[in-house]
Design a protein around this nucleic acid. Structure first.
Lengths: 336, 336
DNA sequence: CTGTTAGCGCTTTCAT
DNA sequence: ATGAAAGCGCTAACAG
């Protein structure tokens, strides 16, 4: 049997209420009593039961963080950012990895309600997450969307500027004289088209490979198909740090050197990769900041210091030119 | 006000107990009543409160996972492994990132007790975690140690064979005629010494750089000092995937090419790095398996299908020779 | 098959 | 400054 507040009360010769006051640092306890109770707590190794406390107070001191894949370096950093800010504010984090699966996401959303978490931070699987997000609104669980907006949904949101970022990346390739290809993702795809338009280049649907932003192997196959075209692209714009891995593998399989035979740019840096081999030209998003800001927005909501209106934070990405796009003169490239 | 079991009961015209039975899939409810109750649940959007349920049943359906740094690719995969197995078994995961800080770890341990988690998986900060692990034993919270053993502590454990792995890596370097250096970490350090001994090479303490296995910058500085020695090492053995990043940076700063000017091997692969640039010679530990096995051990304990004795699982690492150690002939290296 | 009673461990409210 | 009573939402144990 675990030690309860009553055990401590008995031990210290006071009522449970007094122990409760000591735990909660109420000033309405005499110094002497407080000391006696604290001694008993230490002696018995008492740890208050948060379930009981949460039941009555209607708050648990925990947030749910729901992401499609913790192992994706972007989300890893998001989660870390969330965890850090949450921790400083005295909150815990329940991690939910949906594996990009809508059903799993639904299950987790229900569970977050069930656990009575005080708030949720979620990078939703996609637009089809919308109906199930109503689980949160219906149960008054405040939440913040991360990275992905949901069409027709209004709620606090922290995201990157995918359109502008993608456009910049693609413009960069076009400037270098490339004929570019892209893997999808709505906003980034739009940025791609905008860049083409701006440069007066005609859009060729054949050069767009639908792939998975979650599994490098799928991206690899898709890239392979592109490279096998009669008139293959001379450069590739990968939608994210997962897809880019598949692209590089496909290039290798086709015996293509990057950037000599194939230019490459992508969204999202990969922390350790870029430190080890500063090679990929990327739009580096401040992933951890996505997490910290989102958590901050959530904390603001909880504190009630903020109005009803939704807040949208758009975080700019850093455009980092490295070797893979072929922009650098050989000497410069060498210097890296 | 959130929807409670009583609201559903009223709506369906039954008692709370009957609703409870429906929720818990008890067969002792008539088909008709069950249907009515389910309709009410759906209508009202009722989600059972796990705090209340946990309070009475003494279990929450959640595990705590405590790691020194989620963003370390090794632990990221461990966490993912845990999350997956836990999820399949119907458990949730509360993520705790200690940042390698003992105090924070202590706080998290207390919180896990407080939250009444059903079990804990922990990669402890270090030997000094031992006293605070007693929080778990004292409160009968079953747990499994991951990756690091704690001197004088017995409990279920999943770890890699650091001694053998390190020895193999260092032997590899010695075979290639290198004069090696190492960054610390008890077991891996021992493997290093064993390899030297086996090869009849004298141990030179000057060649060992104490560094941080958590921060690449510290490893970078430490490596810099080594490379500045009058008689610098010709190869480096980095203790893990974080340290290796710093080593590579230091080499670059000193204008050294790997492997031509400096051989390099390390523990732990970095998933995306090795797919992008199969370059580092490593002992690749099955990180995700650390998580899945550990969780399995925990589930076994909970099911009581297992005796009192502690179980230790030692997972072998894969020795993967790539360019960085300089073992491959140029053509072979090229082929990669 | 369904309902009643009691109580999980804690805090709120109201006394004293 | 301290305590007694009531109850958060749910389910175990026992009726019926």
């Amino acid at each position: 049997m675990r030690v309860t507040i009553h055990d401590v009360a008995n031990h210290a010769g006071v009522s449970a209420m007094t122990v409760s006051r000591v735990i909660n640092e109420s000033p309405r306890v005499s110094v002497d009593t407080r000391r006696r109770v604290q001694a008993s707590i230490a002696k018995l190794g008492y740890v208050p039961n948060r379930l009981a406390r949460g039941l009555i107070q209607r708050k648990t001191g925990a947030f749910g963080v729901i992401v499609p894949d913790v192992a994706n370096p972007f989300f890893t950093l998001v989660v870390r950012g969330v965890e850090q800010v949450a921790w400083r504010a005295g909150y815990h984090v329940i991690l939910c990895d949906t594996q990009g699966d809508l059903e799993r996401e639904r299950g987790y959303l229900e569970d977050m309600v069930s656990f009575q978490v005080d708030g949720v931070l979620i990078a939703p699987v996609g637009d089809r997450s919308r109906p199930q997000l109503r689980l949160l609104t219906r149960n008054n669980v405040p939440f913040v969307l991360i990275d992905r907006s949901i069409a027709g949904f209004d709620g606090d949101l922290v995201q990157g500027d995918s359109v502008a970022g993608a456009r910049q990346l693609v413009e960069h390739l076009i400037e270098l004289g490339h004929r570019t290809d892209v893997s999808t993702a709505r906003d980034r795809f739009q940025g791609y088209r905008e860049a083409l338009e701006g440069a007066g280049v005609e859009f060729d649907p054949e050069l767009v490979a639908e792939s998975s932003a979650i599994d490098p192997d799928v991206a690899c196959e898709a890239t392979s198909r592109l490279l096998a075209l009669a008139d293959p692209p001379s450069a590739i714009f990968a939608v994210n740090n997962i897809a880019v891995v598949g692209v590089v593998e496909a290039a290798r399989q086709h015996g293509l050197e990057i950037p000599d035979d194939l230019g490459l740019v992508c969204f999202d840096d990969i922390e350790h990769v870029s430190r080890l081999y500063p090679f990929l030209t990327v739009m580096a998003q401040p992933a951890e900041t996505f997490g910290t800001i989102a958590t901050q927005l959530l904390l603001d909501r909880l504190s009630g210091r903020v109005g009803q209106r939704r807040r949208i934070v758009v975080l700019p990405a850093d455009f980092i030119v490295r070797k893979s796009s072929g922009a650098l003169a050989p000497e410069q490239a060498e210097a890296l």
